[in-house]
Structure formats: C-alpha cells, structure tokens
Computed example of a mutant assay.
Amino acid sequence: MSAPERIPPRGGVTRSGSCAEADGSGEERSGADTAAVHDLLAHGELTVRGQVREASNAVLLCTVERDGRRADCVYKPVAGERPLWDFPDGNLARREVAAYELSRATGWDLVPPTVLRDGPYGEGMCQLWVDSDPEAELLALVEDEEPGPGWKGICFAEVGEGRTALLVHADDPRLRRLAVLDAVINNGDRKGGHLLSTPGGGLYAIDHGVTFNAEDKLRTLLWGWAGEPLTGEALTVLRRLGADLAEGGGLAGRLAELVTLAETAAVRDRVEALLRSGRHPEPGGQWPAIPWPPV
C-alpha cells in the first residue's frame, strides 16, 4: 500500500498569532474562562488587521481588546454576505452562532467561541481565532482502493497525468463526533479546510453559515462512518440534545433567536431520526454528497 500524501490543515492557509492571551491555552476552558472569552468577543474593541480574500463572503481578521485582554478573531459582517437562493438574506452570521450554541450543548465544544455583535461594518459574527497544527494528519490521498488502518475512504480524486487517488479522512473519534454534529445542524459545506487540529491535540471546525436548513442539505467529507452504528457516547449526547430541544428547553430558545422556528423544529426531527436509526446517516442521493471544492 502506498504511503498517504498528507493534505495540510486549513486548506494550506496559515497565520501567525494565537488566542492564548484570551484563554490561556486555546484548548479546553472552564466556565469562567468561557464567560470571559464571550465577554471579550462581544464587547471588546474590534480592530481590522486583514482579510481572507479567497473566501466567498467577507472574512475579516481582527484583534479584539477589553480590560487588558486581547485576542485574535474572525469578524464576518452581514453586509459582506453573498445572497444564497436557499437561505434567507443576511442570516449566515446567525447560523454560525447557532452552530456554536449547539456544539456547546453537546459538550464536545467543536466550534470556537462565537458571538453575534456590532462591528466596524455593522452586525456580524465574531469568532475566536484558533491556530492549527501544520503537522496534523486529518486528510490524505492514497493511490489504493483500500485506505488502510487509521483512515476512512471518501471518494476518488484526480491527481494529474491520468492518475486518481482515494481521498481519505482520519479514523479519529474527534472527527466522528463532528460527523454527528454536522448531521444534526445539517451542514451543507463541510470541507477539509474547515477542520483545525490544534497543537494541544484539540479539534475545532469553522465556517457554519450554510447550516440549519429545514431541507436535507448535508454535504461533507466525513462520510467514512456512513451507515455504521453510532457510538454510545453519541447516543447519550443526542438524548441530552433531544431534551434540551424540547419545547421550553434552553437550547430550543437560543436557536429560535437565531434561525427560523421551522428550522429549529427540523433540528429536533434530525436528532430524533438519529436516535431511531442508531446509525450515522448515509447520502440521500437527492443532493451532492460532497462539497466542491472538497478541500
């Protein structure tokens, strides 16, 4: 079997700087730390330092400062969102915040702290910057029909000169949790560049504007577990989410402030469907299963 050709994190995009000044480690935070980060992101002074030009919507790299605390962050103003035919205009920033809220409710904390706030270009989402590990091995290409131990095959990809290779993702419990989260939020755009493995061993996922649609939109690179039984951990988390999404539940109330009532109900329906099947979802066949470009 040929050795995997590693695909770098963040689609090859890197940046210096760290969120360590905000939360100490960039990894697991206590409740007090999380509250402090939220306060900094929501109320700190935003200063624009640059822009991610290859992004489809306006993505501004900023620093945020308050009471002697400082962090790097990403600010996506609503004014910079491109209209989409299947999502309400000016609503992507709220979906990013909704994805963070649901991630927090799972206890997995797979999405960096994200708030909705006013900024230099109006209302938008503000998310703590997370540095990625340039040596992380989450995606790879292998020129074999079988991915081998530690990898899950996704699809074949052209690699030039008439050659194809199997695009694979790591058989990693962190990614498996993310696959469950994506199924719940109905992520229509889970690309490889959205996966951030941190130097401390954590995993974060970014770019959740195309989520929470009431219709099935799931497009992802994390199909490696499709049809397999959900883990006991995932089933426990889904049962907890179901209770929190019930009428009067705290999560249901938070989502209703960010997405439509129909979309909030659809989240509840997806959780119930996962619990009934007890398995990871499979591509439905009525929507492209893998986003383009995939990385």
Score class of each variant (00 low, 15 high):
residue 212 F to P: 08
residue 198 T to N: 09
residue 234 A to C: 08
residue 240 R to W: 07
residue 231 T to S: 15
residue 191 K to L: 06
residue 217 K to R: 15
residue 194 H to G: 07
residue 250 G to L: 12
residue 198 T to W: 10
residue 197 S to R: 09
residue 220 T to M: 10
residue 213 N to Q: 11
residue 206 I to G: 05
residue 243 A to V: 14
residue 207 D to N: 11
residue 191 K to T: 00
residue 241 L to N: 05
residue 240 R to A: 11
residue 250 G to K: 13
residue 219 R to C: 14
residue 208 H to W: 02
residue 196 L to P: 05
residue 222 L to N: 03
residue 185 I to V: 15
residue 221 L to E: 13
residue 222 L to V: 10
residue 245 L to Y: 04
residue 251 L to H: 08
residue 237 V to Y: 02
residue 190 R to F: 10
residue 244 D to Q: 15
residue 225 W to G: 05
residue 202 G to L: 01
residue 250 G to Y: 02
residue 211 T to E: 00
residue 210 V to M: 15
residue 253 G to E: 12
residue 249 G to I: 06
residue 191 K to H: 03
residue 217 K to F: 08
residue 240 R to F: 00
residue 225 W to M: 01
residue 209 G to S: 10
residue 235 L to W: 00
residue 239 R to N: 04
residue 191 K to R: 12
residue 185 I to H: 07
residue 197 S to T: 02
residue 193 G to E: 09
residue 207 D to F: 11
residue 236 T to I: 06
residue 252 A to E: 14
residue 188 G to I: 01
residue 199 P to W: 03
residue 227 G to R: 02
residue 204 Y to T: 07
residue 249 G to D: 06
residue 197 S to Q: 03
residue 214 A to Y: 09
residue 233 E to H: 06
residue 243 A to K: 15
residue 251 L to K: 03
residue 213 N to T: 01
residue 237 V to K: 00
residue 198 T to H: 09
residue 234 A to K: 01
residue 242 G to W: 04
residue 226 A to M: 00
residue 215 E to C: 11
residue 216 D to K: 07
residue 222 L to F: 06
residue 234 A to Q: 02
residue 199 P to Y: 00
residue 192 G to R: 12
residue 216 D to V: 04
residue 246 A to V: 12
residue 195 L to P: 03
residue 228 E to Q: 14
residue 232 G to E: 11
residue 184 V to H: 01
residue 213 N to Y: 03
residue 218 L to V: 14
residue 241 L to Q: 08
residue 192 G to M: 12
residue 247 E to A: 14
residue 187 N to S: 08
residue 249 G to H: 06
residue 205 A to D: 13
residue 192 G to S: 13
residue 245 L to S: 07
residue 251 L to M: 00
residue 189 D to F: 09
residue 198 T to F: 10
residue 247 E to M: 07
residue 198 T to Q: 09
residue 214 A to V: 15
residue 194 H to N: 05
residue 194 H to R: 08
residue 203 L to F: 10
residue 201 G to A: 03
residue 219 R to S: 15
residue 193 G to F: 04
residue 242 G to Y: 04
residue 251 L to T: 08
residue 224 G to K: 01
residue 235 L to D: 01
residue 185 I to S: 01
residue 235 L to Q: 14
residue 244 D to Y: 09
residue 200 G to L: 03
residue 246 A to G: 13
residue 221 L to F: 13
residue 240 R to H: 06
residue 218 L to I: 14
residue 200 G to P: 09
